[in-house]
């Protein structure tokens, strides 16, 4: 299934890109997706959103989902 990934702030710098599209097997989780795009462990403070809702790395993905990885937020 196809998954769209977005990276923000320092995560975008680390990954060297702002977004990418990845093909992974059905029933993959966010953690599986991370493992498919990088060999490095996910930084401890990484925040995850699937379809613009906060979630955890155990979240099971569906075809066409948009997954975002980003560091702690600093707005306001």
């Amino acid at each position: 299934m196809k998954i769209a990934i977005k990276y923000f702030a320092s995560m975008r710098d680390t990954m060297g890109k702002a977004n990418e599209s990845v093909d992974i097997s059905e029933k993959s989780s966010v953690a599986d997706l991370w493992g498919a795009v990088t060999q490095n462990p996910m930084p401890e403070n990484t925040l995850i959103a699937v379809n613009m809702e906060y979630t955890s790395s155990e979240h099971v993905l569906n075809e066409g989902d948009e997954v975002a990885f980003f560091p702690p937020v600093t707005g306001g």
């Binding site: 702030a9 702690p72 707005g75």
Partner: peptide, 24 residues
């Protein structure tokens, strides 16, 4: 909530360069 949960990220700059702000 906005400061701790809304997805914004600050990148500050001075003469020495730029850096992402790490925490609110």
């Amino acid at each position: 909530d906005l400061k701790h949960r809304a997805p914004f990220w600050k990148r500050e700059a001075n003469e020495d360069g730029e850096r992402w702000v790490e925490g609110n």
